[in-house]
Amino acid sequence: MRKVEKKVDQYDVYRPHKASIKKRRLAGNIAAYTGLILISAVWLIPLVFLIFASFGVNADGTGGAGVPSTIFPEHWGVASYVVLFTDSQVPFMRWFLNTFIMALATAILSSAMTIMMSYVLSRFRFKGRRFMMNFMLVLGMFPGFLTTIVLYYVLKMLGLTQNGAIGGLILVYCASSGMGYYISKGYFDTIPKSLDEAAYVDGATKFQVFYKIMLPLAKPILIYTVLTAFMAPWGDFVFARYISFGYSDSYNVAVGLWSLLQQDKIANYFTVFCAGGVLVSLPVTILFICLQRYYVSGVTGGAVKG
């Protein structure tokens, strides 16, 4: 029997404990694992349901059924997937290609502009710097959609809407990408200035410092920037909808698949939507998982240094 010591001093008491440390820890771990399994289930369930729904077909075996009421579709088949590639009203390949082209162009152009802006703001001190940063901060407080209204008309005059929407959208995505400099700038700020100084002493120009030293060192944030720039057009709805509206051939996947859910189409095309959704999610998710650590380091590093 362990005897519990009475008060040692008035304030430092040996308190009798309830359960030993080990037992408490085990109970805690069990609870934690249960919680995690529950959470994982809840998070994955909608995606699992999506995959199930995409295999739903009509009673007669053709693709394209309506919104399911049950977890498992009443009728199974791959016909809904086939619709994506065969139905002329659903030019999925076209949408996919459009989005891919836009993603590629945006990844290159937009990242370039963002990196240029963030590098300058991080490395150089010039007269209008503070003003520029504050000005862009204020500009960012306006809802982005406002600019689209004007841009639509301008692009229309240049012929970059409807059937020229791809070019127009690329322009919209990339032109102002300099404003998204925060995360990259935060990263550049962590590279010690003494590296630059050593290079200057060695005789390099600022341009050489930029592409010989800084860019290689900034590889993680470069990958993050390119990755997020690439992934943006796949998910963009607002701008794409506004600029390419009505011209089905110019839709990106988001607007295209959304159009399948409109009143007139949903009863016959919901499962096609699901199939399209799965096909879009797959490459994006795989790309994301492969480059996961860059995304994570970008988010955690830059997002919070603010």
Binding site: R2, K3, D12, Y14, R15
Partner: peptide, 15 residues
């Protein structure tokens, strides 16, 4: 500690 086995005692109870 003072004759009492403290292996399972959490830090705050060891004084």
């Amino acid at each position: 500690i003072d004759g009492e086995v403290v292996n399972d005692l959490p830090p705050k109870d060891r004084g």
